[in-house]
Each structure stands twice: as C-alpha cells, then as structure tokens.
Amino acid sequence: MKLTILYFSRYRETLGVDGETIEGAFASFNQLREHLAHRGGVWQVLAEHNLMCARNQDMCGLDEPLSDGDEVAFFPTVTGG
C-alpha cells in the first residue's frame, strides 16, 4: 500500500519534514507509528503517549485500519481557540 503522511506543529519541526509518501504493509496506525519511531533518533518523538492522528482528514484512534492511498497525519495535542 502507498500512504501519504503529514506531520504538523512540533513534530514537523522535530522531524525536519512536513510529510512523505511511504510504501509498505501497515494494518493500522499503531503499526505505521511503530515503524516510523523505529527509525530512531528524532523519530522517537512519534512514540509520545499523547500523539494524535487523522485518517483522510478525520481524527481517529491508533487502532484505526489503513487503506491504500490514505492521507495520514500525526500531530501533538491540538491547542486552538
């Protein structure tokens, strides 16, 4: 499967990229997040317990399944308003 991943706010700054496309087999956000955090170094920021995520621009849980072509986003807790 091919996914588009977006990073926002502190994660974007820490990782030094605002997004990427990735190919592989990931059953859920949990698996994808684990794969990314395993890159080590700055990528371990994605192991934070209060990380939030969205699938195709809808907030979701880490147990959410993934499909080919999904737009995936990881970001810290939101602070608008």
């Binding site: 986003a73 970001f75 939101v78 602070t79 608008g80 308003g81």
Partner: peptide
Amino acid sequence: VMDYLKTRAPFWKK
C-alpha cells in the same frame, strides 16, 4: 462549540 474546538480542531499555537 468552543469546548469541542479546543480539543478536536487541528490548530497549534506557538
């Protein structure tokens, strides 16, 4: 609306 916006809308303040 304000309470939900604070926790569910993707904005980040720096």
